[in-house]
Design a protein around this nucleic acid. Structure first.
Lengths: 217, 217
DNA sequence: GTTGTAACGGAACGAAGCATTCCGTTCTGA
DNA sequence: TCAGAACGGAATGCTTCGTTCCGTTACAAC
């Protein structure tokens, strides 16, 4: 069988360079495929990347390994967005900008919806803790500034992101638009207003969403 | 030939009565199981109902038949909630009450998340149209009353319900509470306020969610 | 008591999907 | 020239699941 990419010209031609390019192609394909369907077969990733199955197994020990990598990448992106947001002086803009970034990057699907399909590493645990601390600081600042209603807790961000991630239409760009709309509604609901009645029921607590990370049987 | 109308048996005794009770047990189990996991095996329903597989197949031609029934029941519930809400004089209370009822009954999961797993009947199509008309009237009234921000369209209700359905924790009662909280935030965001900036992007359109009802291959 | 039979439980069957392995091929890089 | 890195994709073996099949139970009519 001819290798369709073998003859690629240019400064990056060569087997090594092609392999390096495949690294990225596979990750990108995996992101797209598993975002669309967390239970997709691994062959779908190979197809989408335009490579064979073995190109995948050369890089990852198995499906679980790939999923773990994707999830960890998403988590790191979350942390990076939070860190970037914390350098914004205006607390409200920091919070909304952070959420918009996370929603646009579809980080939530990448982390939460893939959780439970693999056993997390210790480093992921540490990153998750750090992610939570940063998010808590963003919420804290916005609340102290008086722009966020006082009965909002960090865990509400989880609900909010879940709500945005739930919006999904076939076209990715349109999905992004609709999620922005949803986010705008939610932020309007969370911003402090004179007429605001207190939110009903006990607020979401820290341990209530851990079950996602417990391995699904 | 046995005479089916012969003896009116005791209150709950007899094979017939047991069968009638199983009818309900199976439907209830199916609701619970498929709400938790739309792709659950049919055997899980039988287990949960405490009956054998054949008790299921005696009542439904197959899995698809059962799914269709569940979905249609949910749709009818939606219509019933909307009709009940339309008799409430206050437009805002009508809308919020309607949404609370739909969220509590988890109708959205029952309809949307099961869509595409079966071929719908014509009657379901008619009911869906009617459901939409009723919801549109509820939105219309609330908007005309000035309580709903003017740039909200009927289809936003779909996004809103999706957002609430996305909230899920192991305990059903706690799930209900958290969904109510989410609903409160969203309604606060949708209610007309002086400081409200217009919602971004083109509003959700009528045909944008039809893909759910197209049969998944 | 006898018996026809509706209702049932659950094993058995067969098809489909999927992760992983295996082997032959290609082509780089020294 | 050639060892081997990189690869494509068929083959394999396993699991899951919808559906069917058959033996059993117990009510009801006589």
């Amino acid at each position: 069988m001819p290798n369709p990419t073998a003859a690629a010209p240019g400064p990056l031609a060569g087997r090594r360079a092609q392999a390096a390019r495949n690294d990225e192609a596979i990750l990108e394909a995996a992101r797209a495929v598993f975002l669309a369907d967390p239970k997709a077969p691994i062959a779908a990733v190979a197809d989408r990347a335009g490579v064979g199955i073995s190109a995948l197994y050369r890089r990852y020990a198995g499906k679980e390994d790939l999923l773990r990598r994707l999830c960890h990448d998403g988590l790191r992106r979350y942390v990076a967005e939070a860190e970037a947001a914390l350098s914004e002086p205006d607390p409200w803009r920091a919070l909304t900008g952070f959420l918009a970034g996370v929603v646009d990057a579809d980080v939530h699907s990448l982390t939460v919806h893939l959780a439970g399909t693999f056993t997390p590493t210790e480093e992921m645990g540490r990153d998750a803790v750090r992610a939570n601390e940063l998010a808590a600081r963003l919420v804290e600042r916005a609340r102290a500034d008086g722009r966020l209603r006082p009965d909002v807790v960090v865990q509400d961000l989880g609900l909010l992101l879940e709500a945005c991630a739930a919006v999904r239409v076939p076209d990715p760009e349109r999905t992004r638009q609709l999620r922005r709309r949803q986010l705008a509604v939610l932020l309007a609901g969370l911003s402090a207003g004179a007429d605001a009645e207190p939110l009903p029921g006990p607020p979401p607590a820290a341990g209530e969403f851990d079950w996602r990370w417990r391995r699904r049987e």
